[in-house]
Design a binder for these strands. Structure first.
Lengths: 353, 353
DNA sequence: CGCAGTCTTTACATCGATGTAAAAGACAGC
DNA sequence: GCTGTCTTTTACATCGATGTAAAGACTGCG
């Protein structure tokens, strides 16, 4: 019927309905009035030809593609998966589709993404940055609308965040209240790039603040950076602490995935959870609730988070002149089995102390 | 400097470099030779203007956008997350970007996606179908290239798959060899839509085949459908079996997420794993290895799976006349702690029997 | 020094949808 | 039956990149 690989265009529809292409466009977009019988003829022609508008052409013409980008460090991480789901839902509800990008594999990609090529096919972008601080905003004038999710130390773009710093401090308070005294920070360390990186920096700061207000020392021995925020990454980080021979009685993991890896590693070294060691995570992914030892974590509404990001993004897509806005999403510490104290303490040197 | 919201075009670059727009295009695409000094001038102009080509325009002109679609039932599921990661990596390596879609929420979306609107902005599509069988192929002539991932009973599109049926049968054999006799099928049931749905149907068939070759009866009491293949879905399915009061000594879960939910539920009813009940999953997501009781599962190389899908897709994008091809990815049963038998057996009626 | 032959660069048309402005049609009122 | 207003439809130009074909620059050779 139709030539193999070419789809019908508005011109084809117009011919078949015996009207001009512009009338077809009018039917489609509702820009102008179209008389009933004409509209019906056009609609039938569209149906018969199985017409689908060419979005490249439309995008070229009116400067918008209906596509937004979502960039995250590692799509395998449970939190990223949850966030992707939530963003896709929120976008769908607003008639937008989502293009995903991954930034962790090569550090250059994060920077590239914002400044280079693809940028131009998308109307806006939601970015969960790892290290990016200034490089984003440098080129801000030339960029599409951007909403940052997570903590970044700047106030020139829109962003959505939970107060990670205060959350981490609350988690430390909780662990201390349950009897812990020597808390491992699993995900960031003061030396190294610890405080520079976005979310990681805020969680580390909160951890330090929590210790400080209880007048407890912050030991570098109990801090470790975790480059990949996955389960395997968490396990590797925990192993490092254990191999140092450090003594501790609680772990504050910077994400739930890290916490789950840590719990696995601890168990395989013979630690009992939570009898020997308390563990607290971040993000409340589905997994946390169903873990062997259900995981205490910082919970917040992922869908609300995504909705807020999309609201900021779409409003800015409509009006680029708006001032930068920041929206905080409330969190809550969800106490589960993994922090039922008091803990006996544990050390990689030997069996439970 | 630049007018607020309009990016430089090739025309601007051309003017600044004192050449024609076509020469800029030649520098960019390498279509024709460009003399060194000219090329340098153009490149500098591009740099100075921070020029980025407009992909809508390019897409319109040469009919390709460089975007592929990836549609999966539920992006929260661990397997989907892993697959998304793998596909994004594979696509990136081939200079493509990925648009994600989710089909589980409304059944109509799966159908819509293949036939309607957005279709036109993407060059091809990777689809993990839930129920879709015929509706895809109906319109096949009008569709962009499609690769199905997972088991679908048709041979008119390209597809990548593991032999789920034989894998499920192997899993049953493994459970039987470890001493199980009454195996729960968690994810699909003979009555209901069990056998009709894509992957689910094949896994159910393999389960039945495994029982049959051991001359064991297939009890409807031990089968349950799980609408959402998530951890919570698995827990709910397990609960249903337990509330039926069924007696069993092993669980074959149709994905790892389902298995993890089942293990949680079993534990909370007092079952010991694997002493009372053996559990086997599917997909070998990161999580399986790190579970409280490390999970035996059907493992395969997710990245190889994604690479195969992209190879099929890109080759078809180049030549739509190719015959439909199917590529099988090998799997392997990875025995971990969760199937260290023999199991004592368990029933929802009371404590371990 | 001039010309064939090659290598670069240019002008122009095109991809498909849509805004603009003008033409065509519908309809009321006198 | 004709004018004037309002509605519907049309022709044309445009968005930005790129293929085509023709013009222009340059090389080497006689």
């Amino acid at each position: 019927m139709t030539p193999p690989s070419s789809r019908p265009t508005m011109r084809d529809v117009a011919e078949r309905a015996r009207v001009s292409p512009k009338t077809v466009s009018n039917v489609l977009t509702g820009t102008a009035q179209v008389r009933e019988p004409t509209r019906l003829r056009v609609e039938q022609a569209m149906r018969e030809l199985d017409f689908v508008p060419n979005l490249s052409a439309r995008g070229l013409r009116n400067g918008r593609s209906g596509v937004i980008g979502l960039a995250q460090p590692d799509l395998r991480a449970a939190f990223s998966a949850s966030m992707t789901h939530a963003v896709v839902e929120a976008a769908h509800a607003r008639g937008l589709v989502v293009q995903v990008e991954e930034t962790a594999a090569e550090p250059a990609r994060e920077r590239d993404l914002v400044t280079r090529a693809r940028t131009h096919l998308i109307d806006g972008m939601i970015l969960n940055p790892v290290r990016l601080q200034d490089s984003v905003v440098e080129h801000l004038d030339h960029l599409p609308p951007i909403v940052l999710i997570g903590e970044v130390e700047q106030h020139r773009t829109d962003r959505v965040f939970i107060n990670s710093r205060s959350a981490a401090r609350d988690a430390v308070r909780h662990l201390l209240a349950r009897g812990a005294r020597r808390i491992v920070a699993l995900g960031g360390a003061e030396h190294g790039a610890g405080l520079d990186k976005a979310t990681q920096g805020q969680r580390l700061r909160g951890y330090l603040a929590g210790l400080a207000e209880a007048e407890l020392p912050a030991s570098p021995e109990l801090q470790v950076e975790v480059p990949e925020w996955t389960i395997a990454g968490g396990a590797a980080g925990m192993r490092e602490i254990l191999e140092r021979g450090a003594e501790f009685d609680a772990v504050l993991a910077f994400t739930d995935s890290i916490a789950l890896g840590a719990m696995h590693e601890l168990r395989s070294w013979g630690a009992r959870l939570p009898e020997d060691v308390l563990v607290c995570g971040f993000d409340d992914v589905e997994h946390a609730r169903f873990a062997g030892t259900p995981l205490t974590t910082i919970a917040f509404d992922h869908q609300a988070y995504a909705n807020a990001a999309l609201d900021l993004l779409t409003s800015r897509m409509r009006d680029r002149g708006l001032p930068p806005r920041a929206q905080e999403i409330p969190y809550e510490l969800l106490a589960r089995t993994s922090t039922q104290g008091p803990p006996a303490g544990f050390s990689g040197k030997n069996s439970p102390i």
